[in-house]
Design a protein around this nucleic acid. Structure first.
Lengths: 350, 350
DNA sequence: AGTGGTTATGTTACTGCTAACATTAAGTTG
DNA sequence: CAACTTAATGTTAGCAGTAACATAACCACT
């Protein structure tokens, strides 16, 4: 017994407003060819009846489905929920809905799942989260099906589709600059996983910031990590055991930065009194740790909003080749200052 | 240009199989009244044409929408993604789809959002994640709209709807038993946030396990926490500073357990050599920490599967009052043994 | 053979909306 | 002021399925 009050349809609204169904439909779809007077009458009726268009009927009759698909595989926990935050906000504001699915297994499985997904939901477009956005077979499948899609932070094949990302290089540059401005000169750096494209960008940003401040960076201050807590622990132990121990350590992600904090404690060093720590990503651990991490907030939610808009705009649907400038959408990051970084006093550490 | 191959409809399948649309529909909906021969013919045609029913048409014509709503507010990060894992698995297997939305703001906002959500998506049912499942206004709104709903791990108002949860009491009991069996007698416990119903259950499980093993638990071994890393740090510091310092600490969640690990390091104690640590929840931090935490894995994905099945089954739709046994669905937890707990040797600590 | 009772399949009439075309009303011009 | 635009609204015919009823086919049993 779903219907306490029986479903109100466009016909009820039309009757109440004294117009035809079609006019109501036009008002609801922002068609220009409706007089202001009629529009007002219709809107009043919509309000009064608390009418919501039946999305299925719309989809069946029209060309748009008002559904946007979100496919993901296995991004870091929290990434999905962050992304959803922004995506849902935009969807709510525009009357769209998000249908999500996980796409895992062999690349053959992924292809099948992708195909089934677009076929059975008839979404208007698909958003691919990393690392799914770098699976060539999926890109191929989507292209073949004619479904527009946007990728989030892809590492490769940048011409395959429009994509949204942040400027990892600039963020690392800025964070390094921040540490330098706080008086740090001996800065340790822990590189991310060598397979991730972002690792290189972040590393390069760090190096260039050091260089442009004419600060020498000895090779023993650079350690290779793998984005895991454990790898961070090992890297940090080496850095903190050095004779010319750095006064600040910049880790390529928060998990490793958290490990640096633990390593410091083990070495009997306080954070931030003895060593400052900076992370990257602003995942949950960054703020739940004590002291909370100074880090780079990835604008995941904003990236999501941008992706939704791209699909909604319909720009991607048209056959005409997109302009090059339509492909890349850079979203601003944010440097989050928390307690894990402290300025060095006048008393210079020996 | 969405249509590379024009959409195949039920009519095409019917033509190819040499039957009417209705028969195809019956086969697809597992109707019993179809002969095996006809069923085979139809399935062959479906396979050959790679036909997928149009979900909108189904929804419009039929009573089911094949969409299930998932509403959440602000659970711990990772909870949502964990939940999605199970929910999506079940959905995929059954031809359903998940439409998700976030429901935030004042309770008035939440009511409006909930109402809009069910009205515009016409989902077959709604799943409420904690802490949203304890907002009375939302429960009221859903009931009023006649939409069936299932709650996940609710704290209060247990008769309001069917719900799915795990046995927190038993889990805490088992974990305590585990520590005792590893030879620990002096066990510290950090209670969770007093506002959470689960905190009491976990505490009680701990107490009862101690009691049934006739182990005395001095009051100074019990500390109040608030489920945060910081509160765990403070509680652990007190416990580890005691003269009769416990040999094991059981924290009511993983964040606090992680803090215990850090506190131990600060106190110059090794985990697990000097002090064993047990957590609860098995969130990401539990396995990314070093040493990884022995903890209770909340069966979030399984709870999700159960919730989907409940809605899909249609049991909740009927007006007849549900049997009491239909309300509560307990899902088995799992005790995850990792490196943070060690058995105490024969040499008994003084 | 005729009656009744199944069981399997077909028909018809919707579901709520929009595309495409048809019509009316209003404004413009020679 | 009739003819011609143009703007605003109405009509008709689907979209792709399912519910509900109608019918045909088959079988057993008096």
């Amino acid at each position: 017994m779903r219907s306490e009050q029986k479903n109100i349809t466009i016909q009820h609204v039309a009757d109440r407003a004294g117009v035809s169904k079609m006019t109501v439909s036009r008002v609801l779809n922002q068609d220009v060819k409706v007089s202001d007077k009629t529009r007002a009458k219709v809107m009043d009726a919509v309000q009064a009846l608390n009418y919501r268009p039946n999305i299925s009927a719309r989809q069946l009759a029209g060309s748009k489905s008002y559904f946007i698909g979100l496919l993901y595989d296995n991004p870091s926990q929290g990434y999905v929920s962050q992304f959803l935050l922004g995506a849902l906000k935009r969807c709510r504001a525009t009357g769209y809905h998000l249908v999500i699915d996980q796409c895992q297994g062999s690349s053959q499985d992924k292809v099948r799942m992708t195909r089934d997904f677009v076929a059975s939901t008839r979404v208007d477009g698909v958003i691919l989260l990393p690392p799914l956005c770098d699976v060539p077979e999926i890109l191929g499948t989507l292209k073949q099906s004619g479904t527009p899609f946007v990728r989030i932070a892809p590492n490769a094949d940048l011409e395959a589709s429009p994509y949204v990302c942040m400027d990892d290089y600039q963020a690392a540059y800025d964070m390094t600059q921040e540490l330098i401005q706080a008086g740090h000169r001996d800065i340790g750096f822990i590189i991310g996983h060598p397979n991730h494209g972002t690792s290189r960008l972040r590393y390069q940003g760090f190096l260039d910031a050091m260089r442009s401040n004419r600060i020498n960076c000895p090779p023993e201050h650079i350690e290779q990590g793998y984005f895991t807590y454990k790898s961070g622990l090992q890297a940090a132990s080496k850095l903190l055991g050095l004779v010319n121990r750095p006064t600040a350590i910049f880790a390529s992600n928060d998990d490793m930065a958290a490990a640096v904090t633990s390593a410091a404690h083990i070495h009997g060093l306080g954070v931030p009194e003895d060593v400052s720590v900076a992370g990257f990503d602003d995942v949950e651990i960054a703020s739940s740790l004590w002291p909370p991490l100074t880090t780079i907030r990835q604008p995941i939610a904003e990236m999501a909003e941008c992706a939704i808009e791209l699909i909604r705009s319909g720009k991607l649907t048209s056959d005409r080749t997109l302009r090059r400038s339509d492909y890349r959408h850079l979203i601003d990051f944010e440097l989050v200052r928390r307690e894990s970084v402290q300025a060095i006093g006048d008393a210079c550490k020996s």
